[in-house]
Design a protein around this nucleic acid. Structure first.
Length: 451
DNA sequence: TGGGGTTAT
DNA sequence: ATAACCC
């Protein structure tokens, strides 16, 4: 659909437009992408790091680094040894604890939600915002006696000229102004810089946000969308086409975006299934009708640690550590998880992705004690997790794990108890005074006395 | 490859 | 429960 309208670009009068205002076929989407996010958070925590080449380390990897480090040859996900070799002055900070990154990440999302509530998170450092409605409102308010009212903010992809008689151009231009305001607010209120891309769908917004890097923004006009997608050197660079699909496409002789565009739809559907085939072939044309889905609060909380583990005692200690952190997080969230999952990774040379998991409902008597801090929820939870562990790992046989992870999911708002019902008065978290939800949980803090 | 997340099957 | 995707 979006392709069809792009063809009508020659028309210059607003009333020529086939697309009615506010139609779902013409959207304004912004993708906001923070610059080297973890490194920025670290430089805010410790301003002495500013100006120095900085890497954030997890285990033996530099997972991200600031631009000073990049200039000196450090890359994302580079081995610490290689990074130090390339850049001996590199300063490293440990980034295995994501707490501060996660908190800052949600501050960014919340700031963006003030512009429009339709904000979708992608990882900790990217957000999509659907600006369609906001742009419509600004268009209605527009008094065209101010000359600056219709000036684009930031770059335009390919330097394509804007046609002020083309309503699609005007809407995207206003989107670029909102994007600039968002970046200003992020900097003024949170001290963070980032890039933004404005386009008519999520795929194109995401691709175009990376064109001018760091701390810049780019607008994509519909006439340039084919140039943008063909600027990709390989289909693996297309968001939505991952490792597995890339391998299967390569086996079919498909490696460029144009290969995918021109490949037989029928054969692609046979090979990948109709759903994936149709979706990725549309992506290859720059078409993406997926909505910006408001993320809201997280669907799950998890903590993981990669480490060598070959005994049940080691496993139990790690599980207690992971669980203690999770309990603090869940406590602050206010909602209660109803399912718990244990994930392991077994040591085995090959096998790209090998993880196994077991999950079970959290016993209701434990759920009730969550969030009020004073009852010992650790011991019964650890018991549950160790049962899951023994269900996956035969502890009577030698084993070697390289990762343990604990996940709380199936989060429910509060409990369904309503004021005035029996349930309400039988529910400790509701009928007692404790409603702050901010009790810290310390692992080795032995006895938590009863009320 | 880390330490997270999501949705679909 | 796993598999795919994203960062």
């Amino acid at each position: 659909m979006e392709r069809a309208e792009a063809g009508a670009a020659g028309s210059s009068l607003v009333h020529d437009q086939v697309v009615p205002a506010g139609s779902s076929s013409s959207r304004v989407i912004v993708h906001v992408d923070l610059d080297c996010f973890y490194a920025q958070v670290e430089m805010i925590s410790n301003p002495e790091l500013k100006g120095k080449p900085l890497g954030v380390q997890q285990k033996y990897l530099v997972v991200t680094c600031n631009y000073e480090a990049r200039k000196l040859g450090v890359k994302k996900l580079m081995n610490v040894r290689d990074a130090k070799e390339k850049c001996p002055q590199l300063v490293l900070v440990n980034g295995e604890d994501l707490t501060r990154y996660r908190e800052m990440s949600y501050k960014v999302t919340e700031l963006l939600e003030e512009f429009s509530p339709i904000v979708e998170r992608l990882g900790f450092d990217e957000n999509f915002v659907d600006l369609t409605e906001m742009v419509e409102k600004r268009l209605e308010q527009l008094q065209s006696d101010e000359p600056s009212a219709l000036t684009v903010s930031g770059h335009v992809y390919d330097n394509q000229p804007i046609n002020l008689h083309d309503i699609l151009h005007i809407r995207l231009l206003i989107g670029s102004q909102i994007a600039a305001e968002m970046r200003e607010a992020m900097y003024n209120q949170l001290g963070l810089t980032g890039c933004a891309g404005v386009a008519s769908n999520k795929l194109l917004a995401k691709l175009v946000s990376g064109i001018f890097k760091p701390n810049q923004q780019t607008l994509l006009l519909p006439e340039s969308s084919q140039d943008l997608i063909h600027s990709l050197n390989h289909i693996k660079e297309m968001p939505g086409i991952g490792y597995k699909t890339t391998k299967r496409l390569e086996a079919l002789g498909i490696s460029s975006v144009r290969d995918l565009q021109t490949f037989s739809s029928k054969i692609l559907e046979k090979e990948l299934g109709i759903s994936v085939a149709q979706r990725i072939q549309k992506l290859s044309f720059g078409e993406d009708n997926s909505p910006v889905t408001p993320s809201g609060p997280p669907q799950s909380f998890s903590e993981e640690d990669s480490f060598k583990c070959s005994s049940e005692v080691e496993a139990k200690n790690k599980i207690e550590e992971l669980l203690a952190s999770l309990l603090n997080r869940v406590c602050q969230d206010g909602r209660k998880p109803h399912t718990i999952r244990l994930i392991i990774r077994r040591y085995s040379s090959e096998k790209h992705y090998n993880r196994e998991s077991r999950q079970c409902p959290i016993p209701s008597h434990i759920i009730q004690k969550l969030g009020i801090g004073n009852y010992d929820v650790m011991t019964p939870m650890v018991d549950v997790l160790m049962k899951l562990f023994r269900n996956m790992v035969n502890v009577k046989m030698p084993f070697h794990l390289t990762l343990l992870s604990v996940c709380f999911c199936n989060l429910k708002a509060l409990n369904t108890a309503k004021k005035g019902t029996i349930d309400y008065y039988l529910t400790p978290s509701l009928s007692t005074t404790s409603r702050s939800g901010k009790h810290s949980f310390k692992m080795k803090d032995t006895h938590m006395e009863d009320f």
